[in-house]
Simulated assay, not measured.
Amino acid sequence: MARFIGIDTSCYTTSVAVYDSQQGLVAEERTVLKVKQGHRGLSQSEMVYQHVRNLPELFHKIGNEIHSISGIGVSAFPRRRADSYMPAFLVGKGAGEMLSQTLHVPLYLFSHQENHAMAAMRNRPEIWNIPFYMMHLSGGTQDVLSVTWEAENMHFKNVMTSMDITAGQLIDRVGVALGLPFPAGKHVEVLAKGADNPCQFPVARVKNAFSFSGVETTVQKCIREGNQSSENVAAGVLQAIGRALKKELLSYPFESGRTMIAVGGVMSNTYLRHIVMEIGRKKGLTVLFADPVYSSDNASGNAFGAFMRYSHEKGNSQ
C-alpha cells in the first residue's frame, strides 16, 4: 500500500487530499477563501495570507490518513508552465517541498490546470498518456485545449479561449450584483431553478473564442432596471452561456473519438453539464466530467497525479 498527498492553493480555495494506491481517494478537505460581501475577488497578498492560515488546519483534519506516504503532488503554476508565476501557488509549493524533504519522498509539480484534468481522470485512469481535449471553465479560465503527452507530462495547445471575461466571471459578477455571496456559482444555480420565464440575453459570435462582456453589460442593465426577477436573470445567464458553448464548440473541427474532459467550477453546474453532453454526442466526443464536488478547485487531481507518476516511474525502473 502506498499513499500520496495532493496540495492545491488556488485563487479561491485551499485544498489537500490523500490518494491510496488500493482504495483510491481516502481524504479530501478544502476551505474556500473568504471574500467580503459585495466584493468580487481577492488580491494575491490576501490569498497568500489565507492559504498560510488554512493549510495547517486542513492537514490536521486529514492527519489520520497521512501514513505510508510515497509521493506528493502540488499545483506550482496556474495554467501552462510558461504562464509561470502566481504567488498563491507558492504557498502550496513550499508546503510540498518541506513535506518532500522531511518524508524523503518525491515531489511532483503540476499546474492548477493539470490538477483539474486529473481530478476527472481519476474516474478513467486508462486515458493517462492518451491525447484528449479539455475544456476548463472557471472564474479565471475559459479554455478549450488539445492535450498531448511527453514523458508523463501534459502539453496544452489552445483551441479556444476568452476574448474578455470568462463564463465564471460572468456568473460571479451577476451573482454579486444580485446580492449573492462570492464565489456565486452554486447560488446562481439554485436561484435559476426558481425561474418561470428566463431572460433572453444576446450572445456574441466570435470564431474560435468566447466573449461574455457584452452579455454582462446587458445583464447588469437589466438588474439595475429591476424589471425581471432574480430567478429569471440567473436562468437567463446560464442559458446564454449554454448558447455560447453550442455556437463555438459545434462549429469546431474536433477529432471524433477523443475524450473531452470538462472541468472547473462552472462545469459543476447541472444545466451546463447537460449542454456539454449534448455537444459531445453531436461531435463524436466522449465527455468526461469530474464528480460535481470535485469539478471546482480541490487537490484530488494532484494526489492522483502523484500516484500515476510514481507508478509509471517505478514500473519503468524495474
Results as ranks from 00 to 15, higher is better:
230 S>T: 13
306 A>D: 12
46 E>S: 11
223 I>R: 09
170 L>I: 03
124 R>N: 13
139 G>E: 11
80 R>S: 01
239 Q>S: 00
221 K>T: 14
148 T>K: 14
289 F>A: 13
108 Y>S: 06
28 E>C: 11
100 S>Q: 08
311 S>C: 04
106 P>M: 06
101 Q>G: 03
278 E>Q: 01
51 H>C: 09
8 D>I: 00
296 S>M: 11
93 K>S: 15
212 F>N: 08
237 V>H: 05
159 V>M: 00
86 M>F: 00
37 Q>F: 06
82 A>V: 04
298 N>G: 08
251 S>I: 08
46 E>H: 06
2 A>M: 15
217 T>Q: 06
121 M>H: 00
63 G>K: 09
31 T>M: 07
72 I>R: 11
105 V>D: 11
113 Q>V: 13
59 F>I: 02
26 V>G: 12
145 L>V: 01
224 R>F: 12
256 S>H: 15
199 C>I: 04
244 A>C: 11
27 A>H: 05
276 V>A: 06
152 E>G: 02
156 F>L: 05
5 I>P: 02
139 G>W: 15
250 L>R: 11
278 E>M: 00
127 I>P: 09
311 S>W: 11
7 I>Y: 04
66 I>R: 10
209 A>K: 03
270 T>W: 14
260 M>W: 12
19 Y>S: 10
257 G>Y: 10
302 N>I: 04
188 V>N: 11
94 G>R: 14
269 N>V: 01
286 T>M: 12
266 V>K: 06
4 F>I: 06
317 S>W: 15
90 L>T: 14
149 W>K: 15
33 L>S: 02
112 H>A: 01
111 S>N: 01
205 R>M: 13
286 T>K: 14
